[in-house]
């Protein structure tokens, strides 16, 4: 089906295969991860707010090779047909075409639609939508470079929460999210794309550290109950670390505004 509003290339194209033997042999060893991390360490994360000047609030997050940008518009007036006494949170998740191993189409596929839904489910419990009647808050996440789909989703949630805070939208707490990969009974925090190919399951947890409440959790793969519960604990700790970086970033932004004004 041709997308007539864009410049279309050939109908079919494929990612080339690698020459046999040219792949630097990658065997997954939880003890020795490629970037030297322990299994219970997340990638060092860099955050910045105010990157999209046109938006009411915006944030940019980098964790290793992963790069995510988020813009928040709102609160703005809801379309007449949907007016309600509680605000509407509208989340949109999009991978850039060049963000992954193969080129992504501009039209949203089912994974992006699902991630948009998860984004909303993870953020809605934290946002004070009851204070925004007849209003809509639009959250747009654009992934510039992906490195691990579960980690990407977690980064998107964190980035969106940071952007909401930058926009001044009142929230119960800044949501931090973190991903975990299961490798049989070993649990590895924040798996990269390469590591993901070996995993037997994954978990993404979104957490509000100040209230000690999980806003969202999603897991897939066949995992034992004890392993799951251990992973939940690991994620909760990692989320607390991530939130401290979020708070530092927000504090730095405010200092800049005070000094600059």
């Amino acid at each position: 089906m041709a997308d007539r509003k864009r410049v279309t290339g050939p109908e079919k194209s494929v990612v080339p295969l690698l020459e046999p033997g040219s792949l630097s042999a990658f065997t997954f060893d939880p003890e020795k991860r490629k970037d030297g991390r322990n299994i219970d360490r997340i990638r060092p994360v860099f955050m910045k707010t105010g990157v999209v000047r046109q938006a009411n609030g915006s944030a940019y997050l980098e964790a290793g090779k992963l790069k995510v940008a988020c813009g928040v518009y709102g609160p703005r007036q809801t379309a007449r047909s949907k007016i309600s006494s509680r605000g509407i949170l509208n989340c949109d998740f999009k991978f850039s075409p060049f963000s992954g191993g193969r080129r992504r189409a501009y039209i949203k596929d089912s994974q992006e639609k699902e991630y948009s839904l998860v984004l909303r489910q993870a953020l809605a419990p934290a946002v004070r939508l009851d204070l925004l009647p007849k209003s809509t808050v639009d959250v747009f996440v654009q992934v510039l470079e992906s490195d691990g789909s579960a980690a990407c989703l977690a980064a998107a949630i964190t980035c969106a929460a940071l952007a909401l805070a930058d926009a001044g939208i009142e929230m119960l707490d800044a949501v931090a999210a973190c991903a975990v990969g299961y490798f049989d009974s070993t649990i590895c925090l924040d798996p990269t794309d390469e590591e993901e190919t070996y995993q037997s399951g994954s978990l993404v947890l979104s957490y509000m550290p100040s209230l000690n409440e999980v806003t969202h959790v999603i897991q897939s793969g066949e995992i034992g109950t004890t392993t799951t519960i251990k992973a939940l604990e690991l994620c909760v700790d990692a989320c607390a670390q991530i939130q401290s970086v979020m708070q530092q970033t927000l504090a730095a932004t405010i200092k800049e505004k005070i000094n600059g004004a």
Binding site: A2, S13, V15, R102, A105, S110, Q111, S202, I218
Partner: peptide, 20 residues
């Protein structure tokens, strides 16, 4: 869906457990 490309990847296909 739409103009997505097909893939023939030589490596062991991964189950994308966390998306569709």
């Amino acid at each position: 869906e739409a103009e997505e490309a097909d893939i023939l990847e030589d490596m062991e296909q991964m189950d994308q457990d966390d998306g569709i």
